[in-house]
Structure formats: C-alpha cells, structure tokens
Amino acid sequence: MPPLAVTAGEPAGIGPELLIRLAATPLAANFIALTDRSLLERAAARCNLAVELIDDDGAPVFERRPGQLRVRHIPLAVPEVPGQPDPANARHVLATLAEAADGCQAGRYAAVVTAPLQKSSINEAGIRFSGHTEFFAERAGAEVVMMLASPELRVALATTHLPLSAVPAAITRDGLGRVLRIVHRELQAKFGLADPRIAVLGLNPHAGEGGHLGREEIDTVIPLLDSLRAEGLHLLGPLPADTAFVPNQRERYDAVLAMYHDQALPVLKSEAFDRTVNLTLGLPFIRTSVDHGTALDLAGTGRGDPSSLIAAARMALTLAERRRAAALGAA
C-alpha cells in the first residue's frame, strides 16, 4: 500500500508539534509529512524529542527505526513565529494541501491526514479560502459531507459553518437528499456497513412537534425521508435532538445526521474530544483530520496533546487498509 500523507497545517500553530509527537509512535512508519523540514526540526526541539527526518525519494520503505519520519519538503516563505500566523506562509499551507490531494488522486498516497490550519491567515493573504473540506472538494470536483466520528458515535452535518439564522433556508429537499445519499454510500464503502442505519435529527425543538414548533419537518424533511426509504435507505426520524443521544436510542443507529454544526457536535466532543476524528465523505480519496483548531496559545510550548491527530492517523490507516482489502477482494 502507498504511504499516507500528513500535513502540518498552520506553521505558527500547534500542528508541527503534534506531527512530531506522531513521529514518536509506530504509526509514523506509514506516513510522509508534507511540510518544511526545518519547521519540523524546530518543532522537535520545542518538544525536546529526537526525531530523524528522512527526505522522501519516492521509494517504498518497509522498515523504520523508532523516531524516524519521512518528509516531502515544501518550503516556508518565512520562518514561523509560534502563536503568530503570518499570511506570507499562506501559499506554503495551500501547497501542502495541493500535494496531498493531487498525490492521493495519482495513487502516490493512500490517504491524507491534516493538522489544523488558520483560515484567517490565508484570507488575509488575499486568497479566497473557506477550509480544508471545501479546498479538497473543489480540487477533486466532488460533492462532500463533513462527518466527525469517535469510537462510540458518528455525526454527519447537513450544514456546516453557517450562521444559525441561515440554516432553515439551507435545509432543502435536494440538498438533504444529496447529503443522505453520500452518508449512506460512504458508511457502506468506508465502514463496511451493508445496511447502514442513519438517524436524522429534526431542525426544530421536538422535531417540530407536529408543526406547532415549525413546519420544516412536515414540509421538507419527512417527505424526503419517505422518498429515500422507498429507494432502500434505512432512515430513522426525524428525531428530536434532545433525546436522540440517550443510550437506548444509540442502539438503533450507526450514524446521526445533524441539521447544523452545534446541534450534535457538543455531545460528541464532550464525550470524546481527544478521540474524535473529522472525516470528509464523498471525496475520491480518504481524508481525516483533528477535531480542534490551531491552539495558538499552546504553539511553541511543546505541551500540545497529540491524541486527536493520532486518532485521525489511526482511522486513516484503518480505512486505507479496508479499501485496499476490498480492492484486492474484487480483483
């Protein structure tokens, strides 16, 4: 299997130090870091870790000594200052993402894992940019869905980073149908679920309570779910969000579709913040990420917790191995 790529994210953020801590684990044998080599050297010094950085030459590597990490050097424009993002490095960050996406589509990498980046710094450089997910979707020409997953719970989002006032208008029959079909297909392909059960949350309190607390469920959600059930999708709901996560409900589904960002993610993150992974569903390649931001206040201290990055790396490797096994089985 080809190696997996991992990006360092915002150079002035916590990402480079988390990547160095990933290098100290056995998982690093499967990864190539896409970033500036000197950035990682400085991060290793801040973390007081001895890491041997090996320039990647494209040749297969079957053995790795502890503390080694392969690097595909993509230079910074200016040296980083921890905690102080510099728009001059925006094109470096985008170059790492482009190499990851193009390399996955060309078969050089089996998956990509991303550390957090600073969107504002890229926009301040005069480059239109709304996030990792949108960048990869545009690069691959794909329709995508954001999912966050822990060992206990998977949550997909019908809408992502929208003001709450804009959410109701964004919940359309066509859009919701597209999202649910992607989630259904990816639960089959990536997680090996032959008949995935998806719980769909209502938009309004008590899922609208028969129209007394809003009509979106009656006018949009319920007719769509009925139509998709006729296509063979196993859908529950719309369920009231305030009871959908109690233990006896969780036994009924494999994943949840939330209508907006903060409807379900607080439940997931409060339970498993250090074990939650961000996945982009719908891409022609595997992409996982941490579930947190750049932690500029911790950058440079060497005290960042790598748990989420390690969880993202582990999930990417598991999904890549599952995809490879399925391809070999089909052959």
Rank of each mutant, 00 (worst) to 15 (best):
P163S: 12
L328P: 01
D254S: 01
Q84Y: 14
I74M: 05
L97K: 04
Y253F: 15
L279M: 15
L317S: 08
L213E: 13
A106D: 07
A98N: 07
A207H: 12
L319I: 00
C47S: 07
V179C: 14
A295R: 04
G126Q: 13
T96M: 05
L233S: 13
H212E: 13
P26S: 14
R72Q: 14
R303A: 11
A95W: 02
F136W: 08
A170E: 05
T25L: 05
L40E: 10
D262N: 02
L117S: 05
L265C: 03
E134F: 02
Q68K: 06
S308K: 03
E17S: 04
H73L: 07
L97T: 01
T159R: 05
A312M: 09
R215I: 11
L49S: 12
G300N: 00
G210M: 08
L49Q: 14
P2I: 00
H73K: 10
D254I: 01
G107L: 00
L235H: 11
A189R: 15
L296D: 03
G177L: 11
A166W: 10
T7Q: 05
N89G: 01
I286K: 00
F191S: 06
L180S: 08
I286P: 01
G210P: 10
L39E: 04
E99D: 10
A95N: 14
I122A: 04
R64C: 02
A8C: 15
A100M: 01
N89R: 07
A312I: 08
R154C: 03
R287Y: 04
L187D: 07
E17W: 07
L193N: 08
R185V: 08
T172M: 05
Y260T: 09
L233V: 09
C47E: 03
L235R: 04
I122K: 06
L176G: 03
G67V: 06
E80M: 10
G208F: 06
K190N: 15
G67H: 06
P247H: 15
L176S: 05
I54R: 11
V93F: 07
E138P: 04
E124N: 11
E216N: 08
N248L: 12
M146P: 13
P163N: 10
L176F: 06
V183F: 05
R139V: 02
L193Y: 09
V6L: 00
S121K: 12
L203T: 10
R72Y: 05
A98M: 03
V267L: 07
